[in-house]
């Protein structure tokens, strides 16, 4: 399969667009009319051909432009990459996982040649070719995690496992839904999520943590998460909050279909072999409400989910100021037809 990589931007003029093929494979997250939280985690196994689950790391038509956007974000704020010194083994683990899966899944774009410890990596879409010694960071232009993280869509956090918990001790984060890597680096699972007063709630966090502590090499897991973003902006970081928050005021009845994007995160978690660390990947898919209405059942379902959404959740996702426009605009596509279970487009 040969992709045509889009020439597009995720800032300033926001020329980002989805082709009909990209719309059809969008990981629409709602299988039911009402959105309920659950531990929606499942094995990250190979999905249907052409779907975003087909390969370990999905590469799509936005690949080149997203990597270029990442370069801009890192240039403006080098703090979007950070790695504590004890994470070097995990960095190499990450590089190996990324290079071997990408070369294996997309041989037309990426080639990895191993000659003992001397590896040659070729990334044709980004015009990169480097020969380096595996395990010797001085033979790469940057640290291995940053080197490979720059050549992948989405964000990655490396979690060190110790003291019966997980610490976020490294990350490359340029397309986050409003959390700060610089602030969170070095935090434990509990610290990241804060002390939670109710016992039942503690149970929830402990359950998720226990599951992750038992994550095994070769058995990755994934889940979807969602929010909404005004403009197809990848960098909705708290660092740049003053730059993008103001766009929320631009949403009105006329602009909502174009401006508001459903932002879906495909989160995946892998145990890394040498370091026993976990890599947490967050891949972001953006789709304007207008593009979502390409498929009537998505438009109807999205309308119903948004109409029923708990106000606290609307606030939590930062949608309060424009959410009513979303519901009003989507209403025109909803004829009340009964929809069967599933998130498929048609």
């Amino acid at each position: 399969m040969q992709l045509n990589f889009n020439d597009e931007s995720f800032r300033d003029d926001y020329s980002y667009k989805n082709s009909p093929g990209a719309i059809k494979r969008f990981p629409f997250p709602f299988a039911e009319d009402h959105y309920m939280y659950s531990v929606n985690i499942e094995p990250h196994t190979k999905g249907a051909q052409g779907s975003v689950y087909e390969f370990t790391f999905d590469v799509d038509e936005h690949y080149v432009s997203e990597c270029l956007d990442k370069i801009i974000t890192l240039e403006q704020d080098p703090g979007r990459y950070s790695a504590l010194p004890h994470m070097m083994d995990a960095q190499w683990d990450f590089l190996e996982l990324a290079m071997t899966s990408m070369a294996n899944d997309y041989p037309e774009y990426f080639t990895l040649t191993k000659n003992g410890n001397v590896w040659t990596w070729e990334n044709r879409p980004l015009d990169i070719m480097d020969t380096f010694t595996f395990g010797d960071a001085s033979t790469l232009p940057s640290e291995p995690f940053e080197y490979m993280g720059r050549q992948m869509q989405g964000d990655f956090v490396l979690l060190d496992q110790r003291d019966g918990t997980l610490y976020s001790d490294a990350g490359i984060v340029t397309s986050q839904a409003d959390w700060s890597l610089a602030f969170n680096t070095g935090m434990s699972w509990q610290e990241w999520h804060g002390p939670v007063p109710k016992v039942t709630e503690l149970g929830v966090l402990d359950r998720a943590l226990k599951y992750l502590l038992n994550l095994q090499v070769g058995n990755p897991v994934r889940r979807l998460n969602w929010t909404m973003t005004v403009n197809p902006r990848l960098d909705t970081s708290p660092e740049n909050y003053p730059l993008w928050a103001i766009d929320r005021n631009k949403v009105n009845n006329e602009t909502v279909g174009e401006l508001v994007n459903l932002r879906v995160e495909l989160q995946s978690l892998f145990r890394l072999p040498r370091s026993n660390a976990i890599v947490f990947g967050v891949r972001c898919y953006l789709m304007s409400l207008k593009d979502i209405t390409t498929y009537p059942r998505w438009a109807k379902r999205l309308h119903r989910v948004q109409k029923d959404l708990h106000p606290d959740l609307i606030e939590y996702k930062g949608m309060t100021s424009y959410h009513r426009y979303v519901i009003d605009w989507l209403a025109q596509f909803d004829d009340g037809e009964v929809l069967e279970y599933g998130s498929h487009p048609e």
Binding site: V39, I41, E42, P43, A208, Y211
Partner: peptide, 10 residues
């Protein structure tokens, strides 16, 4: 089934 690890409840 979903998680196959005794955590999701599915």
């Amino acid at each position: 089934s979903l998680c196959r690890g005794g955590v999701c409840g599915r």
